[in-house]
Design a binder for these strands. Structure first.
Lengths: 151, 151
DNA sequence: ACTGAATGGACCATTTTGGTCCTATCATCC
DNA sequence: GGATGATAGGACCAAAATGGTCCATTCAGT
């Protein structure tokens, strides 16, 4: 499940929107310029995010993209799945595309052990966490919640 | 830290040797043929393993490669490091080569959380486990050892 | 109608990867 | 001591994955 640069750009662009006032509509060029990302490429990615329901697009007059939901309500997992495809997590970390649950590699069982944790972490991290770089803190919080639930 | 096909071939070839009688010397061609691996490519990989001290090579009369140590004494971690370079684990799972501890990506903290577990698992898995496909069992054992140590 | 941006897909370029070739070097056996 | 069949090593090549552009179309508002 190695991620492509697309999901990084996606997170980057989305996080930029997340730092703006809620409901802000920004044309893609503005976002691309602000974050130093290749505009046409980012456009391609944003289309996918729109189709996935994470962004709303606006044409005509006040045009551009806006977050479809508040940043705290969007998980990193969703973003990654939207960009990389729903089966990202079934693909192995170690030998990505040629290894899946069906055609396991020599170390696949290892990945199957780690995977649930990765998925859970990504599910608990939100766009807001990414936007203000508070990943570590958020992960700590998520871990202690998890421990509490286990009791 | 996505692994290349080289480490898979490495594990595959080594595991094949591990299933033979201890100390067996086999010419590379034989191993490649038996496992259906591209001989010249495997040769390249085996050279690296030899330099890393995991294999012994024999020229002249009784030629070929043999395991330098008993299978139970070779960890998967060692093999992977020998093939991919010592810094494999510092490279991020998510955006491999462009992301390291020094140039962290947006999700790097997530990787830093998971990494120790992956490393520890690879360190606890041996060539013997891989040879007889007993990864799951070995991982279970390792986990309970770990829990015991934590108490 | 005109504008400026979103949409969509075909297409191209670069990098990474997997893999071969060729030459030299070796230790043994005849 | 030369023929043999393997390892050693690096230069090199090919294919695929990835990153990225182009272009033609659609759209909503001025």
């Amino acid at each position: 499940m190695k991620l492509s640069r697309e999901s990084e750009y996606a997170l980057d662009g989305l996080a930029y929107l997340a730092r703006r006032k809620p409901g802000t509509v920004l044309p893609l060029r503005a976002i691309a310029r602000a974050r130093g990302l290749p505009p046409v490429f980012l456009a391609k990615i944003f289309r996918r995010l729109t189709r996935a329901g994470l962004l709303t697009s606006h044409r005509g007059g006040r045009r551009g993209y806006a977050l479809a939901r508040p940043p705290q309500a969007v998980s990193v997992k969703e973003v990654v799945e939207a960009v990389e495809g729903a089966d990202v997590f079934r693909r192995c970390v170690f030998w990505s595309n040629r290894c899946s649950d069906d055609h396991p590699c020599l170390l696949h069982d290892l990945w199957k052990t780690v995977r649930p944790q990765v998925v859970e972490m990504m599910a608990s991290l939100t766009l807001e966490d990414v936007a203000r770089g508070g990943l570590e803190e958020a992960l700590r919080a998520s871990r202690s919640r998890h421990r509490a639930a286990a009791r």
